[in-house]
Write a protein that binds this DNA or RNA. Sequence first.
RNA 1: GGGCCCAUAGCUCAACGGGUUAGAGCGCCUGGCUUAUAACCGGGAGGUUCCGGGUUCGGGUCCCGGUGGGCCUACCA
Length: 1023
Amino acid sequence: MSARDFKATLRLPEGAFSMKADLAKREPQWLDRWNKAGLYRAMLARPTEKKFVFHDGPPYANGNLHYGHVLNNTLKDFVTRFRSILGEQVKFIPGWDCHGLPIEQNVERALGPKMRELTPMQRRARCRDEAQKWVDAQSEQRQRLGMLGTWDHPYLTMQPAFEGRVLEALAAFVERGIVYRGLKPVWWSSAERTALAESELEYEDDHRSPSVYVRFRGEASVAERLRKRFPTMREGSPVSAVIWTTTPWTLPANRALAVHPELEYVLLERSKRDGTVEYLLVAEPLAKSVIAACGWSTPELLPRTMHGAEKAFLGEELAGLVFQHPFEDRTAPIVHADYVESTAGTGIVHTAPGHGRDDYNTGVKYGLEVYSPVDDAGEFTDELGPVAKSWGIVGKHVFDANPVISAKLEELGALCNADGAFIVHRYPISWRSKKPLLTRATVQWFIAMDEKMASGARPGKTLREVALEEIDRLAKEGSLADAEGVEARGWVPAWGRERIHGMIAARPDWCISRQRAWGVPIPALHCDRCGHPNLSVALVKHVAKLFASKGADAWYDESASVVPEGFCCEKCGATDRFTRDASILDVWFESGSSFYAVCAGDPDLGFPCDLYLEGSDQHRGWFHSSLLVGIATHGHAPYKTVATAGFVGEKVQVTQDDGKVKTKLKALAKRDIEEKRQRGEDVSVYDPQKIIAVDGAEILRLWVASNDYTDDIGLSKAAFDQVKESYRSIRNVLRFLLQVVRGEVVETVAEVGSALQPIDRWQYQKLVALVSRCETAYRHYDFRAVVAAVSEFLSDASGFYLDVSKDWLYNDYKSDRVRSTLAVCDATVRSIAVILAPILPFTTEDVWDHLPRRAGDPSSVHLCTWPKLSVEHDSSLEDAVRAVRVLRDRVNLALEPLVSAWGAEKKAAQQEKRAPGDDEAKWPESARIDHARDADVVATVTKDEATLVAPLKDVLAECLLLGAVTVNVHDGAPSVRVVRGAKAACVRCRRRIRDVEDASGLCGRCTRAVARWDAEHPAPAAG
RNA sequence: GGGCCCAUAGCUCAACGGGUUAGAGCGCCUGGCUUAUAACCGGGAGGUUCCGGGUUCGGGUCCCGGUGGGCCUACCA
């Protein structure tokens, strides 16, 4: 008779939850299912008192999603989902920024010269289609990431209702009296023929600019005055100020020379080959470099020492000197400016108020003309001076005119250095065309940062003042809230405050007009009689209403009545004819108004918003413009918390000088990636769509969650491999827990009640702590702490609690300790599914699908609420487990060499084709230990240790994974004696327990278990 | 040039207001199990906490100065 196979009597793990996730294939199926079931609608429909107003910063509707979007959108979804699971209503309305230059240019490129033939209305229609195309594409890609949102009802900045609200926001600024029209230099893109906002600039690292040093000949009075100071100056020899510029094209617009009043200047005496002498004025600290740059050989140069040691003099002494323009018949007076540096150039700055912000300010101070003879295309106009005009550069692009001007300067003897010299430096370029920009004075609409506001919530204060106060208020409310243990408020991370503060403090007036067609028009009416540009509150509000119903296209529709009834020119009172302003609003004004258009009026949302979350570049962009708009409309910031993410870069290995290899972060450059591709390297890691297609969005989400998003994040294959690995390990433990529960409705911890065993109670305590820790971490937007805590918890459970419990889970039959452990396993898998649901929405749903439903369980894990667990904390259990683990380490230390040695012997015997342990003297029975469960251990412990371990004494052998254990209490050095159990291993549980019966081969526990099993499973009638 | 920030093990991150021998997870090496098995368990190696000063009884942590990196910014005129 063969031995009975007891396998059927065991409670082994089982279940259909697959080890392989197959995410790439299954994620779309879940998405489809959720959509069909209306999951997000169901989430929003749950009755709740609390709302969380989370406002989406609109991505620009141009191009596919890149890593920055992935990072940002994933983080947003963590928040949406977490807040929902907390039981709050989070209506996330995804938005898109649809107007602006890049879209207009996509269309232009596709259409070519035909674009010019279209009316503004037709052009706008094309742009609308283009924007919609990308909105649709990005919407799909964002949804594919698993993002929750009202995808059927997004907000688009090109929707009429939105456009109307934008103008209402503009009306608020007008009402505050801080919108003005002025002639100021702005960054100008000649390629796009428009002014650009600060946030639309990009910088090119290796930009090449001409570098010219130019003489400005002093008037006769200059030499006279200087000779009073320097009597040895030769009479009749020319005196010149030397300037340096990288923009020779701005020289025609020169109106002054600026010096620093406190900088020291010297006069150089230069003997020329023809025997004549010239004098050159430069700053002392720069004299050397100027001499070098101009190639004046040293013998020709004589520093002039005057009045003893006093050879230098201060810039302030130069006041009143007047120099001649190098080619036009005009003068350039010396002015003072404290931005003049002593680190580059000559210390004398060529000043063209029409072509630079500093120059402009200096011009205002000294009453200089703001002169800018350059048109929209960046070409010189016939406003040029007669000499420059005679060079044939009218109609020439300023950058193309540079060499002409240099050559002419050389001809005129005004050029000090060699023609063709250049420097390589960083220079602003257009974000779209990548063409270099110029600074050009044009008439634009501005919002004043430093004008006192005439009305609103904070009259008498300037926009800048209130903005700075608001920044501090958020920071302060944040720290207060933090101290009370409430979620993070204000700036996350805290240094965001410094960043935006610095930016607001230093920014110039906001230039809000753009000379383009694709946007929201500035609804100003220019009086045909007197030319006055009218922009009144009533007018703006009137047009706002028009736009809200007909869209901004109405501005370009001659039949639309943009003039309000009874309207007359503010200046001359004319009522007959007006011309519509041709500018559109800066797109940052539009997106900055999004809270006003989307949240402020929605009963499901509100104002201010709880959270804005974007990349840290938005301190200059959206956070910044939203703050300013919020102050105009409501008198305060439109958000309570601003969280920022860093940037995604590429991880590169760098060998340091000391030979050590370090990994550094490099900005993701398309150029670099393209090079790699051409070299045949695998570049799939740089394309998030590829990761999704191969590994699944869940992997991207976990990657985001396990990084410190406030810092820059490095991209590498190794990092993704690691994320995949940690995903597997999380999934496997969850899988095992599911297999333990086996799809059965087990008792809850509460139902088990007093039958809860000490070790289960200990594990449950840990779970309760985990739940609470994760909640805090989520509230502080610290997602990696959630992942870290859960990973550590699961890893520990796998290594200790679950490993240990297997003994009774498999082998007991319906014992109290099985009930107890099952209850804890069930609570664990349920809680962790909910905890991880915001980060891993697909996997946790998979887990939820494999759990049996209890009454009241929702159909989806995403309709669950945050776990509410509680247990009275018993620290003696922690002490007990700690002590047991110390003991376990000690036992393992003794056991390990024995198991290893016997293992080696078995292996050797197999190779030598002999029976293992045939040398009986060397391998007595007691030394043949295959596994810890064969061991019978006698451990001597101290009294203290025994007391600590006491709560777990009933499961001590199991905790140590041993066949049997005996504990001797004896104060002194602890010791461990290990032998193989004397009896045979139990045929069912395979432990060498001391009470194994020879007849049945079963130990006592298994005998009872089998008896109960047999009683409940009557054998089928023998056939 | 200016502002803000970052630097701890191969990777991703910990280490309360300065306080034992700097930890975890993953990877790596290695042993075991074959009742979580393309899984699981044990053991091990691996760090001059970027460098140099300073304050302190004591520095990964605070201060100063470098180096490297990132974002933002600036008419290098």
